[in-house]
Simulated assay, not measured.
Amino acid sequence: MSRSTFYRKFKALSGENAADYIRKIRLHKAVGLLQKKELNIQQISLEVGFQSTSHFRTKFKEYFGSTPSEYA
């Protein structure tokens, strides 16, 4: 299956593109790590696959409506 076919079928089945779906999964994993309170926000952002903590904070706020520190 080609990449374009995969993305088209994924969007048809899930209603969202693959990158947004993966980001949503990563952000929900971050919430679980925030609730454990064992790691700081920079460590959590790296743990869930974000290269930049500022990008993580931005995407977290877009999705949940609050920053990671406010959420914790």
Rank of each mutant, 00 (worst) to 15 (best):
R23N: 01
R23I: 02
R23F: 04
K24F: 15
K24A: 11
L27V: 14
H28W: 02
H28S: 10
K29H: 11
K29C: 14
V31T: 05
V31D: 04
L33Y: 13
L33D: 11
L33N: 09
L33Q: 08
Q35L: 10
K36E: 08
K36G: 07
K36C: 08
K36I: 10
K37G: 03
K37Y: 07
E38H: 03
L39E: 06
L39K: 05
L39F: 09
L39Y: 09
N40L: 15
I41M: 12
I41R: 06
I41Q: 05
Q42E: 07
I44Q: 02
I44R: 00
S45R: 00
S45M: 04
S45Y: 00
S45W: 01
S45P: 03
S45C: 02
L46E: 14
L46Y: 12
E47Q: 15
V48D: 05
V48P: 10
V48N: 01
G49T: 09
G49F: 13
F50Y: 09
F50Q: 04
F50N: 01
F50G: 03
F50T: 02
Q51R: 10
Q51S: 13
S52L: 08
S52P: 01
T53H: 03
T53Q: 11
S54V: 03
S54I: 02
S54W: 05
H55P: 01
H55R: 13
F56I: 11
R57P: 11
R57F: 13
R57H: 13
T58Y: 15
K59R: 15
F60M: 06
F60Y: 02
F60G: 01
